[in-house]
Design a protein around this nucleic acid. Structure first.
Lengths: 204, 204
DNA sequence: TCCATCATGTAAGGTGTTACATGATTGC
DNA sequence: GCAATCATGTAACACCTTACATGATGGA
């Protein structure tokens, strides 16, 4: 009875959507802010989105292609002489509608995955030295993420507010992520301190 | 030049591992704690691992099969009369070695994904009402996760400490995750309060 | 001369989700 | 009689990552 669903977006008339296509919608969202090329989109990911989503260039280009095929975006080729041509994409009306639909739709619950915690969980099966190495490296990673966020904030936050409202939510996301990272860093630091102390006692 | 790599685990002699197989290793880790069936593993995921990793039953069974084929686990069939037979798996020596290798290996950096933040980011493009709905639902989800963790802690934490050291890291993971969730909840609550206030002013 | 940046992609394969399939027992 | 629990799995597909491919310009 149940129809086989098409490979992508919009196609499911049966309105029992099963796939999420989050990347598609993020890209539509970015293209709504301003028309961009695949390359621009990758840049934007690195600068503004990386802390909670990212994608390799290959995925970006294939997704652009599928969005184009689905009629959600249109393209304008900008000929350049001294560089490869740019293909600048922007939303179609259908794309705009589809984006709005997604924005209003509930956020689906999905399994959270954290490889660091997965490994840490089993550290009791080896020795504390191994755990300490992982914890220290994780601390470094957290610190770098926080640093990167602050850097981007300086560069980006000072700029335009020609869409005040848009910026507001972007700041909220940053606040959220920063709070999360800071909390994680604190726990990590405490754990490192505890372990270091214990290892010192053992040596003595 | 570069050799094509085999489909799974251990096979790459060329030691430039590219895939992560995190789920495989988590399952090996769980089986090291005690021998289990696929069903038991799923239970354990729900009870103890869900906050940072999870998998559907189908994935668990297929992964068990591939671990078995790779010689990392062995099976004992326990015949039951009034229920389907249980296949209880445990690590082989090779599996044990492979697990240890993974535990000592660096945690690879990977893109973090957060669908809620992805959606929130673009909420400036619609109206505040939509954002408020998402935020409230997210708050509910965070509260439930925290509640679930506390429940599991009562049930599980009171039990055996026949491996003190193992438990220690499991508690650390819980502490970490709880701190993260709590920080997120605070930011979410603040954001909701701000929005509610603004919407009330607009109405007046 | 070498490296970074600009700019585009294809192919292959690994990982994760959803839908579907089966069937007995225990407790309400 | 119905739902939940125990217990196993297959098939299809959606999603993501890695490796590979190309090639010009501009600055150190």
């Amino acid at each position: 009875m149940r129809e086989k669903r098409g490979s992508s977006l919009l196609k499911d008339e049966g309105h029992e959507t099963s796939s999420r296509n989050t990347l598609c919608y993020i890209m539509l969202g970015l293209l709504q802010i301003r028309p961009m090329s695949g390359y621009d989109i990758k840049q934007t990911f690195e600068r503004a989105v990386a802390s909670y989503w990212n994608a390799g260039t290959s995925q970006i280009y294939t997704t652009l292609k599928s969005l184009y095929k689905a009629g959600l975006i249109e393209v304008e080729v900008i000929v350049q002489t001294s560089r490869p041509n740019r293909k600048v994409y922007q939303l179609t009306e259908t794309g705009q509608r589809e984006l709005t639909r997604w924005q209003e739709e509930d956020v689906p619950e999905r399994f959270t995955k954290d490889e660091f915690l997965a490994k840490l969980f089993f550290c009791g099966q080896t020795d504390d030295g191994v755990a300490l190495v992982h914890l220290r490296q994780h601390r470094k990673s957290l610190q770098e993420q926080l640093k990167h966020m602050k850097l981007m904030q300086q560069e980006y936050g000072s700029r335009q507010s020609r869409r005040q409202h848009l910026l507001e939510y972007q700041l909220l996301v940053r606040e959220y992520k920063e709070a999360e990272l800071t909390a994680s860093l604190e726990v990590t630091n405490r754990a490192i301190a505890r372990l270091e102390e214990r290892l010192q006692h053992e040596q003595a």
